[in-house]
Design a protein around this nucleic acid. Sequence first.
DNA 1: CCTCACTGCATTTTT
DNA 2: TGCAGTGAGG
Length: 754
Amino acid sequence: MNLDSPHRLLEGLNEPQQRAVVTTRGPILILAGAGSGKTTVITRRIAWLIESEGVAPGAILAMTFTNKAAQEMSERVQHLVSIPAYQLWVSTFHSFCTRVLRTEGDRTPVGKNFVIFDPSDQKSLMKHVLSELSLSEKQYHPKRMLAEISNYKNQCLLPHEIEHTPSERSLATLIDVYALYQEGLKTHHACDFDDLLLLTERLFRDPTIQAKYQEKFKYLMVDEYQDTNRAQYQLIQHLVGQERNICVVGDEDQSIYGWRGADIRNILDFQKDFPNTTQIKLEQNYRSTQSILDAASLVIKNNQDRIGKDLWTNRGTGEKVTFKLAQDGRSEGNWIADQAQFELLRASNARVAILYRANWQSRQIEEALRAKNIPYLLIGGVKFYERQEIKDLLSYLRLLYNPFDLVSFRRAINAPSRGVGPTTLKKIEAAIPEGGEPLEGVFQALKTGAVKGKAAREVSRFADILIQGRKERDLRGLASLVQWMLQESGLTQALERENTLESESRLRNLEEFLNAAADEETLGSTLEQFLDRITLVSDADSVDGASRLSLMTIHCAKGLEFSAVFLSGMEEDVFPNRNAKDDDNGLEEERRLFYVAITRAQMKLYLTGARHRRVMGMNTLGLPSRFLRELPEDVLDQPIRWGVEVYQSGEGDWTNTHDEWSESETKPASRSKSSFQPTRRYDRSSPKEERPSKPKMSKDGWPLGTRVTSPRFGDGLITASSGKGDMLTYTIVFQSHGEKRIVAKYGALEKKGS
DNA sequence: CCTCACTGCATTTTT
DNA sequence: TGCAGTGAGG
């Protein structure tokens, strides 16, 4: 290979990138740092295989995690070599599996024509299962049960394969729940997200099937390999054939889906799994300035679990990172809004993102943006296809496709409200013959007179809609079918009758849905394909390149880049998230999340925090995120100050600082000298700082941060408060008893030193 | 069977 | 704080 006069497909690539493109045989591990041109490499590599090596497009399988990534790759490949899209197998794991199951489905419990349950469907099935087993939802939270089941599924374990000893009562119950849940899915002819992977993996255990797919796909590529879980890992192992042409691309520092079963060991151990792996590191960053990269590199160095990379850039030092401490969440929002507007005005093509750890944090930022009339796009939260009215309509469509879907049946039968409640539903369900459709239950219940009167009329009208609908399904196009369903189901009329602001917006959503169906129809999709697509789209897929200001979680932002990035809520327990920092793994993942956030920025990075925050209805005192301390001083435009009091943490143990709560004689933190210096003034950098607001809780209580003594628990520090008057309650962290909630009136608390 | 009002409880992150 | 789940009344 002569790299001096590059082939068209190698043009503009640096040396390691070129090697990654042309190394097509055997196992390859591409460690692609943030912003190192990963997508370019993957797409050029696919094009290279097709064009220079004459590989048939259909023999290449490329897997991604999001539809957006898949779509982008597919488009870029088509741009490079002109081949029809349908020949390319670039898809998400989930849609790949769906495709396989739709082809081979006769061999799985749910058959070919399954529906895919989304989380809300799962939840309603789970509730049903729990009541069947007479387990209280109070004790067995449906969501937690589902999370645990998901965990097992991600590890490729079915209920009967989970090992447990007789003494593990709660595990035994979970297994029962899991088993019955799977039974439920089977009778509904339904899969949940995890089943798509699990069932496909099971399928590939059959040597015949395995051979078939190994023969088809000679070249495998996996994007974001660090995010694969056990099921995905196994799936890949099954697919790798004799020639071992597997290329995985990933970045261990961006592994942020451990909670979803992703196992960072998959990428760390790749070379063990595939001896003689070619490893290529992409370390030149084309996205960010040096300051941003320095911040990112020094932060991530604190992690143990990594292979290690040294990112560099030739884009210059750039502006330093700005940190802003606001008095509370509201003023944090306001400051971000103002500053974001400034960033937007800076360049006509500026794209700005406001990121946060958890969705709830978006609220106050949104309020600020709305108050200032700054347009923005919110990604996440309630998804379009999860809205009530959409789910109502979908439940009808799903029933036309798969009449066994009892969850949809239960929903549709009383949407819009027809006066068919739990009682009638129970009777119908009892009348469903073994292995039969819910609709047969309706006929039975009517025949035997179990359901009569008004309910009977409504129910039989509902049955008519479904029966007629099945005929219409085969006669009409997608859009026209949706249109018909909207009318016949009475959903539109019910909303029109309601005639409120709320119903108006729901009608608009239904219209939007109709548009989506029309779009889909022009692609020539069937009802099946339409339904699959709807369930498998994610928030990240809706990120609109044209939008100038976007709000999203850090997770959603992975893979994206923005000229300026705001990262809000830099407080301990917010970020790192309180529940995630229990163990080292959790904390390292949080740190990787921080790393992902930092590396989204091209030109400018802002970090913000709030001194006080209302969280879950409580006033809480924010302490600086430990991550702030990991930032090298010289990337910041000024030292980080944290309000009046100084929090000087030795691994979050405030008692280490005992007397330093009064601002007088604080010693600087060990690593960064000037960080967290006490300061009496609020941050002076901002031109129009909100007036040093009234001290919180000073009227009928003590301010947060006050040190108190309790006769029962000894010395402590007020960290949060809620309620007022007689109900005034403090959350106090005691030196020797941990965190307690104490009603001020009865607590006999005394202020320390008075 | 539906609606409204109350209460108690929770916030990670998503294909 | 806000939502979801529950219970009383219409």
